[in-house]
Design a protein around this nucleic acid. Structure first.
Lengths: 223, 223
DNA sequence: TTCATGCTTCGATGATAACCGAAGCATTGG
DNA sequence: CCAATGCTTCGGTTATCATCGAAGCATGAA
């Protein structure tokens, strides 16, 4: 039964991580779900057998992605029912508050601050979001150029979109991915506003005192 | 988590029994699922807490029904994914030919005739289908008004779409759900073209001689 | 070749939850 | 009032399955 596959918390976390359409490796998914690679391997085999994900081998890595948009649609529907029942899932797993506040998701900013940034960009009309699609407005381009020295041509990429909505692990709301999301993360690091935690394997992002201030000046007024 | 509620076989069987929109008593559902009343009671309490079913007390009986069409929609989606993976539900005995030919799916027509109707509507350009989305054309509105006295304002509903593609478990093809699907089923009954089988618990729809003819005149030429 | 990485399989453990018997409420009928 | 029906709650048993340690296999790098 498909529903029992989605029912397990660990598998649900993996599927949520795949909701944006990217393909993730088995170990990345293990980390997302907060379980060991052995356990993840077992789960992924079941999801594959159930037709929810498909596998692409690439060298030593194994990339998993959702089989197709229909799967994403059903998952979204389930999330909708859960939300309505007030059963917004309180996540099991690492409760590290720093991880909840700011972390890297692939190559862009996630966590509370990531969600806050996208919200602020929307209320400032820097981007427009329609469902999963996000587009940068002309006003947004000027804003990025003026405040962060990010020009539109830096964001061009043959296959990757400039903006993309990425469903947040802890917040269950969207944050910004795509080349713009990556460029912003890079810029924050260059400006010494924030740095990835030096601990190996950590995805925590630490903001400096002044970094937090400047960030808030640009993206703070959203809420 | 909602998915784990649907994941349990006993609960899934209960939900399947409720898919046609009827309200069933706790003991009827226990029988459907093949479990004792005690166990069923526990399951139903969980489904209620999860917002999937709602309860109506009536004397000594307790009637349960699906909360709303959204729940039915998600369940249909899950069944669709399961069907694709070859994990067809065993419970719904695909043997009964009458059940394959015409039955109610929640509140609309399913089975061979349901699929045939949607196909015919598409070739007649009464509706346009893009993937999961279906929209009624202007020509379709005129057709419904003229032949079945269904006007567009009868189909308006705050949250439910007019048209929706619903994956058929026996045919593995789409039939028409949404308010239009429901309105058509109601109209067929009003016109005495078809009636639900009187046997308790049956989802079979029986067409009358003349009903079948009129139906074919409108939707028959599809194949 | 040898080593490291990424992932899987095996085996054992532990926690969760489905299940039923028995007993307890509540409602209806006599 | 008592008895019957419909359903729930309680307690204890059982079985499933998620989980992880350890070992195995495959790929890529040195």
């Amino acid at each position: 039964m498909v529903a029992s596959l989605v029912g397990d918390p660990a598998r649900a976390n993996m599927l949520t991580a795949l909701m944006d359409g990217r393909a993730l490796t088995a170990s990345e998914l293990a980390q997302e779900a907060g379980i060991t690679p052995q356990t993840a391997s077992s789960h992924l085999a079941k999801l594959d057998a159930g037709g929810l994900v498909e596998l692409e081998k690439q060298g030593r890595h194994r990339y998993y992605r959702l089989t197709d948009p229909d799967v994403a649609g059903v998952l979204e529907g389930l999330a909708g029912l859960a939300a309505r029942a007030g059963h917004m899932r309180v996540r099991t797993g690492p409760k590290d508050p720093a991880l909840r506040r700011a972390r890297v998701c692939y190559d862009h900013l996630a966590g509370d601050l990531g969600v806050q940034m996208l919200e602020s960009m929307k209320t400032q009309r820097l981007v427009r979001q329609k469902k999963q699609e996000i587009e940068l407005t002309a006003e947004g381009e000027r804003f990025l150029e003026r405040n962060l020295q990010i020009s539109p041509d830096m964001l061009a990429h043959p296959r990757r979109p400039v903006c993309k909505a990425c469903l947040d692990w802890s917040e269950r709301r969207h944050h910004l991915a795509g080349t713009l999301g990556a460029a912003l993360m890079t810029r924050f690091a260059d400006l010494k506003w924030a740095a990835r935690d030096p601990a190996p394997g950590s995805r925590v992002v630490n903001f400096s005192r002044t970094g937090e201030k400047r960030f808030a000046a640009l993206f703070g007024g959203g809420e």
